[in-house]
Design a protein around this nucleic acid. Structure first.
Lengths: 192, 192, 192, 192
DNA sequence: AATGAATGAGGATTCATTCAT
DNA sequence: AATGAATGAATCCTCATTCAT
């Protein structure tokens, strides 16, 4: 069990090192040798845990996406009223984007770049099903605009990515009121 | 004159080749040799027109950003009522994003990646001033929510990037009605 | 232990290959690829032992200079009378210059070319201190001319470089008597 | 004639530019493009005056060597007593080495490097014949040591190259007395 | 005579990956 | 399981030289 722990440690260290390097320097400036050094292992060791560099990146993407999604539904259950449920999810996501900055930047980079193959991106989206379900219910109940879920996502969730980006670049700091207003904008955009 | 034309041709061909390769393969898979081949010149020729790879990318970024911005204010003038002015700009941007797919993807990639230095990004933003002015006026007139322009951008314009992305991945095709509704969402998000 | 040996072998092989190529072809005609081939390793392997080409050249310079200096003081000790001590050193240097031809040519090339930075050249000079000490003593004892050590070096040691050069070009072969006379010229030049 | 002048100007400008660049940066950092720029002509123009880079370097070597030799025999005639004649030549050479620093450094670089083919070096030596003749006479008259002219050159003339080098590196400045003593060393070294 | 655009060949260096230990 | 030495292939970039004008 101690052994198992250590193994997981090494894998985790590699993923974290990759996250750091890719986020701050970009894919093309995150060589395997640096990843290994930052993780405290030998370059060859990476290949015990991952098939190759692409597999390492894919794995990281899926893990981060999973942690993002898990977080999104904290304290949420599908019996809540639509607006209340949405508010919980929106706040969870906002919290994540504004505090897990490296992870969020990494996801942005992956989602706007051909560095992750579409089928892997697709896998990562599975976890958001409860949000889709909520929106479908909202549309049935006549609370939400009858538009594609893509449009809902574009207006309700995606703007947070932009706010994260400017936040991270230190050109704008979001106050508590700003955040409340941002939520209202999101809701105004999708509510009927 | 013929000479001047040819020179511009070569520079333009290089920029276009770079746009194609970076958009479809990513920065790290767009080697100078491929760029040269696609542009129909020898690798060394690139260095007659650009200092180095970074300069080539920066130049491309600024040119595309400029074309994007120029397009955004087609038929717009700052005497128009706020909503009408905004609608024109929004539609211009939507047209651009949905038709100039390569250019739009490239800009997304640049804006979500450390591949362009912040100071160059800053330069590219200058051109959007008229939109900022319009928003300031809208807030003064009590038509728009009194929030940071970053928030307005996040909800009014940025969602189009997401819609472009899904559009491009063929997982969603936007109809004329969808688009009208998307505009309404944008407006609902920012109007008071 | 076997491993350690092999590692040293490779480093040494690289240094030797560099010595050969630079000596016979000049710095500008000693590409890393040729050095690697001559040393029997892949080009990338050079970078396991040296930071870059300049570091390789610098290292070689310092090693050769050290071997030159070590040799210069063979059988010498600072209790010997000035003339006798000088004769030993002079002969040691003459032996080195006339037998270690590649090494000597390489040093000449380094010392007459901007290929080695002044601070590295400076480092290489440290080892000659005992000769300087001997000369200072000789001046104190009224045996040597009261002139700068640079002048003493120019007349006592430096001429050997010229004799090496002509020797190497096969335009002149030095006999034992010639050599004895050369020593006398050196001594005549610096003695009072 | 004006035209002829201009032509010579361009050739001379190219030679001077080459001298500057090679002297200060070394052969491997004196690209044709920089030479052209420094001379104020287009790269292709070089090839109107010189066959290729090697020819340019060779031509420069021969011109500089000729100017060095011409200077060496200023005010000299072969009727003078040996010591007096030698003193004149020695002083001429010393003047040249200590004032025409770029030219002297360039010659040192050429003579200690495989950058000039031996047959070209040989050509350059022709001009020193009067010095050889003087030495032969000195040996016949029993004034000079009966040794090879190479040895005489090594001790009488070559040391000046070393003194130039240290002079140029600012680690030693030669006074008038130093210079007188240097001459005496040279004479002591070769006289019987 | 003079040029500046153009280039093929080659330069130093990096990198993902492998393999003997 | 873990490694560090090793590498072939590729990357960015430079350079001597040419050629159409």
């Amino acid at each position: 069990m101690m052994k198992k722990k250590k193994v997981l440690d090494k894998r985790a260290a590699l993923l974290e090192a990759t996250l750091n390097l890719v986020t701050n320097n970009g894919f093309h400036a995150a060589p395997m040798s640096k990843i290994a050094k930052l993780a405290g292992v030998a370059p060859a060791t990476i290949y015990l845990y991952f098939e190759n560099k692409q597999d390492l990146i894919n794995s990281l993407y899926l893990e981060v996406k999973a942690s993002f999604s898990d977080n999104a539904f904290k304290n949420y259950n599908d019996k809540l009223p639509v607006k209340q449920g949405f508010e919980i999810i929106w706040n969870n996501i906002a919290d994540y984007k504004l505090t897990q900055i490296d992870e969020s930047s990494f996801l942005s980079q992956c989602d706007n770049t051909p560095m992750i193959a579409p089928e892997i991106i697709g896998k990562g989206l599975k976890h958001l099903q409860p949000l889709i379900d909520l929106w479908e219910r909202g549309k049935e109940e006549g609370i939400l605009k009858p538009v594609s879920n893509y449009v809902l996502y574009a207006y309700a969730i995606y703007p947070l990515s932009f706010l994260l980006a400017v936040q991270e670049k230190d050109i704008y700091v979001m106050t508590v009121e700003d955040r409340q207003k941002a939520f209202e904008s999101a809701w105004d955009a999708i509510k009927i």
